[in-house]
Amino acid sequence: MVHRKQVLGPDDVRRAVTRMAHEVIERNRGVDTVVLLGMQRGGVWLAEQLGDEISRIAHEVPVGALDVSLYRDDIGLRPVVPGATSNVPVDVDSATVVLVDDVLFTGRTVRAALDAVADYGRPRSIQLAVLVDRGHRELPIRPDFIGKNLPTSLDESVEVSAEGVVIVEAAGS
């Protein structure tokens, strides 16, 4: 029996995204140089929603997608199937890149993303926005914008969509 616990609903997600949009604008004193890059695949819809919110409040920002499967440190240890392709719509040189992901866990995906972004150019800074920070970091990485801190245990998994956030607990744990 799998136990599922809904911790955020659709309205909570929407409010969290709106708050993060304000924080991105405030932190960067506007969004003139900001580029949002959603991490394939879970971060892409979130980057788009965050982009929509920022355009509503300030003005339009470029939104792209980043696939980091070729930069992972576990290549050869587990099946890696590059899914969707990266799409970096603008020159990132001197830009403020905001990486966007649904869940921050070990930090290894973010580490891979830092390497990937560097292959497109040299941003002025890179920031990290996540909807859920579930803890258990294995690298010295911390997010700049957080939708919700959500302490979890290692045998739980976290499912995120625009419909909400669900903690899934495996049977017997």
Partner: peptide, 15 residues
């Protein structure tokens, strides 16, 4: 996927 890598400023990955 690789064609996108080859269009980058630095077309090289550590895979």
């Amino acid at each position: 996927h690789m064609a996108e890598v080859n269009r980058r400023l630095h077309p090289k990955v550590p895979a």
